[in-house]
Simulated scan of single mutants.
Amino acid sequence: MSDYNAQDPAVLDDSPKPDTTIPMVIYALHLAGIVTGGLTSLVGVVMAYVYRGQGPHWLDEHYRYQIRTFWMGLVYFAVSGLLTFILIGFLTWLLAVIWLVIRCVKGFKGLQEERQPDNVDTWLV
Rank of each mutant, 00 (worst) to 15 (best):
N5F: 14
N5L: 15
N5C: 05
N5D: 13
A6S: 13
A6C: 01
Q7A: 14
P9S: 09
P9E: 06
A10K: 03
A10H: 05
V11N: 11
V11K: 06
L12W: 01
L12H: 03
D14Q: 13
S15H: 11
K17E: 14
K17W: 05
P18L: 08
D19C: 05
D19K: 02
T20V: 13
T21Q: 11
T21M: 11
I22D: 00
I22G: 01
I22Y: 00
P23V: 02
P23F: 02
P23T: 05
M24V: 02
M24Q: 12
M24R: 13
V25I: 15
V25P: 01
I26N: 00
Y27S: 05
Y27F: 13
A28R: 02
L29R: 01
L29S: 03
L29F: 12
L29A: 10
H30Q: 14
H30S: 08
H30E: 08
H30N: 13
H30P: 05
L31G: 13
L31H: 11
L31Q: 10
L31Y: 11
A32C: 10
A32K: 00
A32N: 00
G33H: 11
G33I: 11
G33F: 09
V35T: 12
V35H: 03
T36C: 08
T36N: 09
T36W: 08
G37W: 10
G37L: 10
G37R: 10
G38P: 04
G38H: 01
G38D: 07
L39F: 14
L39E: 02
L39I: 15
T40V: 07
S41P: 07
V43A: 15
G44F: 03
G44A: 12
G44T: 04
V45W: 06
V45L: 11
M47N: 03
M47V: 09
M47G: 03
M47A: 14
V50L: 06
V50H: 04
Y51G: 00
Y51S: 09
Y51I: 00
R52K: 15
R52H: 09
G53H: 06
G53A: 08
G53S: 10
G53T: 08
P56L: 09
P56I: 01
P56N: 12
P56G: 12
P56D: 15
W58M: 10
W58H: 14
L59K: 08
L59Q: 12
D60A: 01
D60L: 03
D60Y: 02
E61I: 01
E61G: 09
E61V: 04
E61Q: 15
E61D: 15
H62R: 09
H62Y: 07
Y63S: 05
R64V: 08
R64G: 09
Y65K: 02
Q66D: 04
Q66E: 12
Q66R: 01
R68Y: 04
R68S: 07
R68L: 10
